[in-house]
Design a protein around this nucleic acid. Structure first.
Lengths: 146, 146
DNA sequence: GGCGCAATCGACGCTTTGCCGGATGCCCCA
DNA sequence: TGGGGCATCCGGCAAAGCGTCGATTGCGCC
């Protein structure tokens, strides 16, 4: 499979919100037979378009503090910092960005103490010029992929 | 269900990576019978710990530009801005944060033009004092919930 | 026109699931 | 101490799920 037609897109749209929907229901919604739908889904999985299925966990991060670390580096291509960040399991996501910032690091820590420790550890890295912490007080909007 | 024991955590860990694993296999991995596992999963779903199941789409976001908008508000409890943000489907997540910033808005747009348009629309809101754009050049680290 | 490929359909049989009754372990209170 | 009450576990049954098969259809190209 190379090109994704409209029905493939429908499948992806539905599965990205309800990954455990019965094949029969899915087939009904996109207007195909169950077996044809089955083959399309299998094809999407095998070709790597569907990389997997994830449970969306809500409560689990209860008690966890989320924060953004806004990082400016001395010289942008500072490789070592990424290796260091990868070592901390609390680091959820790191994005290289354009503009005055260089990295946006998203972390989830169990306590403010751990946040400070982590912050200090990262700030003390030679490549870090500036580091601003923004603790998440509330998720105002959070949308799944549509 | 209030407290999550070790087995619940195991279930969440496995389902967060392989949401469509057969119940029997899941039961084998956590060391419980199939029906007990079934009940636990159902309980986790009903209590809202598992919010849903999503297909992880690879190719689909191709061509989409991700960006962070770092927003400072005039007066922090500026309700109107959230309503406005919620109207744009490109807005993926909005977090109220502590520190010099007030909001961190994550968006996904199909083009730089659309990014600029969105940026201007948000910046022109009365409650916005300052707005910095950080376009994501690369995702260096991205981890699923563990 | 006729051949071939790709996609669809309905049907078959196996697997997985939801639901039930009964057994087991734990806690609390008389 | 002992006996309910509650939560959790297990195994079995019926129903619904799924993958796979051959046959059919639609379409493009020789």
């Amino acid at each position: 499979m190379r090109e994704l037609d409209a029905k493939d897109r429908d499948i992806l749209g539905i599965l990205s919100k309800e990954a455990r929907i019965p094949l029969k229901t899915l087939a009904g919604r996109i207007g195909l037979s169950r077996s044809a739908t089955s083959e399309r889904v299998a094809s999407l999985e095998n070709s790597g378009v569907i990389r997997g299925y994830r449970a969306d966990i809500g409560q689990m991060d209860k008690g966890l503090i989320c924060a953004f670390l806004l990082v400016t580096l001395i010289r942008t291509p500072s490789i070592g910092i990424l290796d260091q960040l990868a070592r901390y399991p609390e680091v959820r996501r790191v994005s290289s960005v354009s503009g005055q910032l260089d990295l946006i690091v998203e972390i989830e820590v169990p306590s403010i103490d751990r946040l400070n420790t982590l912050r200090d550890l990262i700030a003390s890295h030679g490549g870090v010029e500036d580091l601003t912490t923004a603790i998440v007080l509330r998720r105002d909007i959070e949308r799944a992929v549509d």
